[in-house]
Structures are given as structure tokens and as C-alpha cells.
Design a protein around this nucleic acid. Sequence first.
RNA 1: GGGUCUCUAGCUCAUCAGGUAGAGCAACGGACUUUUAAUCCGUAGGUGCUGGGUUCGAGUCCCAGGGGACCCA
Length: 487
Amino acid sequence: MDEQHRLITERLEKLERLEELSVDPYPYGFERTHRLAQVHAQGEALIAAEQRVKVAGRIMAKRPHGKLTFAHIEDQDSRLQLFVRKDVLGEDPYAAFKLFDVGDIVGAEGTVVLTKTGELSVMAESVTLLTKSLRPLPEKWHGLQDKELRYRQRYLDLIMSSDVRATFTRRTDVIQTLREVLLAEEFLEVETPVLQPLYGGATARPFTTHHNALDMTLYLRIADELYLKRLVAGGFERVFEFGKDFRNEGIDRTHNPEFTMLECYAAYWDYEDVMGLVQRMFARLAEKFTEDGKLTYGDHVIDFNDGFRRVTFFELLQEHTGVDFQGLAREEVASHAKQLGVEVEDSMGLAKLLDEIFSEKVEPTLIQPTFVCDHPKELSPLAKQHRSHPHLVERFEPFIAGFEVGNAFSELNDPRDQRARFEDQVRLAEAGDDEAQLMDVDYLRALEYGMPPTGGLGVGIDRVAMLFTNSHSIRDVLFFPQMRAEG
RNA sequence: GGGUCUCUAGCUCAUCAGGUAGAGCAACGGACUUUUAAUCCGUAGGUGCUGGGUUCGAGUCCCAGGGGACCCA
């Protein structure tokens, strides 16, 4: 019998002894009067009133001293000491209490007191077992350190670390804040299909699945874009969706195969209007989650007080390489790329080359909030041609701390141009680009009925959550990051 | 895809140079009516990720495989 078995067996034996003492190890509920944080907040008043409280939580520490025991219980957001005395609790209940383990979930009723050392505590008149725990918790001082275990058994990570709980609470607060900004501007929250007969809206490889009854191939969406824009064509003027997207690609500190995206679209807006929205979103986030508009992220201090710097794609390339790439032919760009030490493959088109150079030479430098604007047309098959530069599109990407947190454009709504762009993509696909976008004739049909001029935005929620929780890896803001099958 | 590191008790970590694996916490038994990483006495707990190889002898060296982390592309 292995060690794990022995420790579990011991706890099962205690559970049986408790049942012999008529203690139900898994009762149905507990009427709590105060969360632990409330006890702390109202401490003095509760003591003065000699008020009885009923609190609940998981036993995280137990210090028995013969006829008295100190224990700490922890609930979602706070921790409190229980002061358990045999002469207060009674002989039999104290005997039962001795069988409670660290890890068990209990309720306690009693008055709020200060101990001799001044610690706010509940002087327990009764302690009720609410859930018997069968597995021992990790070491109380170091907690759970093993990252693999933390990701695979997130429940245990959450039990052991209030910081981890706070990170995930913050993630939800970030999402809620963005939702509030959009609702306040009269956007409608909607839902569109995750299972799609054609994938589109981004350059990425999809997950493929099959619907049995319909006997058809379906894809997990890589973006919401084309469906949300159908809704704008349908007359919903401002829509947004928080949704999971799925991309069948590698995993690293900013990529997980499933991730959360916010997309929103506003009729009668162009990309300048969308810039305004992004400014308002981050101003609100900074206001809510920083003291003074300055956010510490790793070694950086991100200053949101002046909003986003606005600069074009080609200006940035020139700034960081000394080369003006505008108007250069593919071969010239390729030779510059080689000189700059950027890996070049024959299959790369002009746009792809520029994108590579940009990723390598420019992106890591974009620490302070920056809008990268006016990308080459070939990189953006769903964005509207720039009103004064035919080779560019009206597009911008907000960058913070060296990574892209979103993507936005004046949406292409000319069905003739959109058809031509899809055809270009199809040619790329035929040439072997497995990320090229697919011709979507139903989407073209929607554009033919007419989609108003529209500004659109996608925001990588996990990355924003990383920023505002100072998390180095996307895995630290996903409850259950993708892992290989357990060895 | 490439490189570096890592996997030892439930957890956190040791084991210098190859010689039958240790500590703390947790657990178990005992003492203890103001502790808070409680203390004190005692006990138990290990396929050393897996599989090969070298060796008289491998947790340790070598090879292959698996999980994980970090960095690079």
C-alpha cells in the first residue's frame, strides 16, 4: 500500500469514528451569518455587542494545546482564527473536533473575542463539520510550488494561495469593466456560433470536428468577426461578444489553443472612432486597477495617463531599422530582411516579410501604450482600404508591454473589394499558405445586402488580464491551461 | 522546431566525489488552558518519472522515452 493510500486511509478511519459519534461528514448546508472579511471589518462592534456569529471555511491550520486548540479557517477572501476550548465546547464535541483535519471545511458558532495576543477570533461554542477532506494539503509554509501540479490541479492551487484566487478575481473584474464600458455606450451583448461550417476572421489554423447527424465537417471558430458583422448588416448597430476562440497552433507564454476574445462592432464608426473606444477602455481599467494610472508589469512601468501613442506601421519600421519600406518590391524587402537578420523563406510574400520584420524588430520595443496604424493591405483582408493611401488599410493594433492586445479596423464593406481580397487569399492558400482565409460566399451575400460603414475591434482578454495581474504567462490567468495528457 | 534546466516521502527540499536515501512540514502515539511556521518526547512513511546500458555496486554516469519549466526561432 503506498503512502497516499495510508494518509487517505487514516482520514477515512477518522471519518468512520466521527460517524460513530453521530457526526455527519457531508451535511447539506450551513447558515452562515458573516463572511470572515465581515467579521474583521466589524470586529470591534461585534466584540462590544457580544454578538454570536456563524462563520464557515476550510481549516488551514490547527494548533492543539491539550484542552484548547487554535485553528485558522479560510473562506474565499479572508481568514480567521477559531479559539476552541474544551470547557466551552463540551467534552464530546471537543473529542469530535480533535478528529477534524487541516483541509476539512467547518462551520463555527460563537462570540467574537480578542485573544491575549490581540488576534480577532471566534470563541467557538460549536464547531460543525461541513465536509470531511480525505487528502492531505501541501506544506503550509511553502504552499504548492510545483507548476505542473498547480496547472493540473488548479483546485489545489486555489485552496493554497489567496494570491492565485485574487488573480482570477481580477481577471473577472477586468472583463466586467470592459463589459460596463460597452454597455454604457449602448452596445448589445450577443452570442454567435462556435461551431462553424467555414472558419474566418483571422489568419490561423482551426480545430476540425464533425457533426454526425448532419454528416458535415465543422470548425471551432478562430474569430467571431464574420458573424458579428453579419449582425451589423442585419441592423444591430453596436454589438459585442466575449467568446472563446480556438486556434490549432503552438503553446507559449502568450498563446493557449483556446482563449478569450472580446470583439465589438459599431455602425457609422471608422477606426478613429474605435481608437477612442480603446482609449476609454484602458483609461477605465487604469482608473480601476492602478493607483495613479501607472501599472507595474514585470520590469516595466506602463503609464496610461497620456493614453496611446499613435504611429504608423511603416514609421515604426523605419524608426527601428532605418529603412523606409514603403513602396519597396518583395525582393528589396527580402534582402533588407536578411541584412537585418530576419529569417526569410521563399514562400513568404511581401506582406508576410514586412510582418516578420515588424514582429522581430519593432514589437518588443512597444512597451508604453501604442497604436500601430495603417498596415499593408495584404496583411488585412477584412479591413477597408485607407482613404488616402491605396496600399494601406485603416487598421490599428494596440500594443502594451511588447505584445499585441488587440486589432481593429474600419471594416471592409464594399462587397466587390471583399470578393477580390478573398480571391487573393484563396490564391495564397493554393500556393501553400495554410493560414490563408477562406472564401465565404454567405458573408459576401450579407455585404451585398449592405453593411453600414463600421468600426470593429478585437481584444485579447487573456493578455489584458496578464497585464493587470502582472502575470508572466497566459497559464497564470487561465484556470485550466492546456496540458499534455498526464504521464 | 532548437537550446538549457528539472522530475527523490502527501508537500517543500537535501543527498559534495558512484558505496544499501535524509530533513522540515503534514501524519500517527503521548504531554500541554492564549497559540499563530506553537513547543517537547516518541513512531511510521520511498517502484528515487519509465526503460535500457556501464559498473562488483547507479537516485548519482551514459543512452532512449515521458511530464514540466525557462529561453530562442
